[in-house]
Nucleic acid binder design. Sequence first.
RNA 1: GGCCCGUUCGUCUAUCGGUUAGGACACCUGGUUUUCAACCAGGUAAGAGGGGUUCGACUCCCCUACGGGCUGCCA
Length: 467
Amino acid sequence: MSIPVVTRFAPSPTGYLHIGGGRTALFNWLYARGRGGKFLLRIEDTDRERSTPEATAAILRGLTWLGLDWDGEVVSQFARKDRHAEVAREMLARGTAYKCFSTQEEIAAFRAAQEAAGASYAVFISPWRDADPATYPDAPYAIRMKAPRTGETVIEDQVQGRVVIKNETLDDMIVLRSDGTPVYMLAVVVDDHDMGVTHVIRGDDHLNNAARQQMVYDAMGWTVPVWAHIPLIHGPDGKKLSKRHGATGVEEYQAMGYPAAGMRNYLTRLGWAHGDAEIFTSDEAMKMFDLSGIGRAPARLDFKKLENTCGHHMAMAEDAALLHELQAYLTAAGRPALTEGQVSLMKQALSFLKSSAKTFPELIDKAAFLMVSRPIARDAKADEALDTVSRGILKSLTPRLHSANWTKEALEPILTGIAAENGIGFGKLAAPLRAALAGRTVTPSVYDMMLTIGREETVARLSDAAL
RNA sequence: GGCCCGUUCGUCUAUCGGUUAGGACACCUGGUUUUCAACCAGGUAAGAGGGGUUCGACUCCCCUACGGGCUGCCA
């Protein structure tokens, strides 16, 4: 009987949800959900200067769009500052931390002197580390962890393997600032411990930090969680992902019209693999997901593959759900909402539209024929397709549509018949039909369009064009 | 500067000492077709470089190069 898995995502609310953060959250979510565990959310808002409620809201929106639901209340790290300070005091009492009266000026001077001497970087060891409390001045002090100076700290990482850090390369990190506020490194450990986090899955920019955090666990006699430091995501050029690569915020992807299921699938496969599995649902991903499948090298974003993956999910989606997401997309992208009439037409059209669209903008574009109203504006190519001969054919076609059953089976012989009578292939007939029905020459199948808009509208559009 | 991590087709990756190095995206060719797409079939394409270890290395070790991270009273 193993302990239930508890994972967490702990972003800093200093901006939107970064795509890399989204993937980190996704991995934590998949791992927990696939094992009947819990996935918690904690906002690391201890930096009061940079943290904003807007950023927190944006992060929550991003996670929600991605479909990553968390358990329980969102924890504010800042709100727990007293608890953090309490632990710092306990470390003091246990003798695993000490009061350091060195001022920031003194520390800066030490580093400057090191640099001036041309010496290689040296860790700062506070002179108060082993000082007699009797010598303590009546001055503000910070609390520093009394870290081991010899030996090594070993991080058994599920992704990176066994990482050995020599203790002499680490300084005695401050756990409580002289103003009494806790430092991030302490806060994470205390929070993760108090929240019962069993698996810490996060970016590998924290790999080195893990050593110092592990020292805090040891100092408090707490159980060290399972570590899994995952590589960061890079831009297409292999450099760290930044604004110049284009979209870095999760919400930007929503606004670009990628379906969330496709996004999840793509992000899951970015830096993680399970044999040849490429296209899968979230349920399937939960079953397959494991830490051992995570790669150690940073992955690059590939929009082409993202689109392809999204195309599969678009086609897999259920019409009703897809319609909802389409409407959410229109809102997110600031595009006009569907009218009631368009919604009902869309319900019929989705079944064939979704099979070939990869994104919502593409879906909308293919649905142009049901978004327009008479008189239908035509582009240049559509005008070209409606030459005199074609108009004549359309004119002769409309009467036959009045009595026809409105099914593809009934319509097909009528259209092919008209084409044959005029000695042209069906392709030649389809062009003016597209032009008449949609005002453009690139459209879904003419049958699909006719069936969707119905007899009355079809005849009206054809008559308009035949004039 | 020090320490840590990484490097298989253009991209995401499989491989866990012995394979014609597999799959997916992209690309190219052909097919299907009512346009675009989708779809089907086929093809081009990879172990950063150099040393070891071994009967045998993509796989293990070392060096170099390149990329990334950490090195704060930031998170």
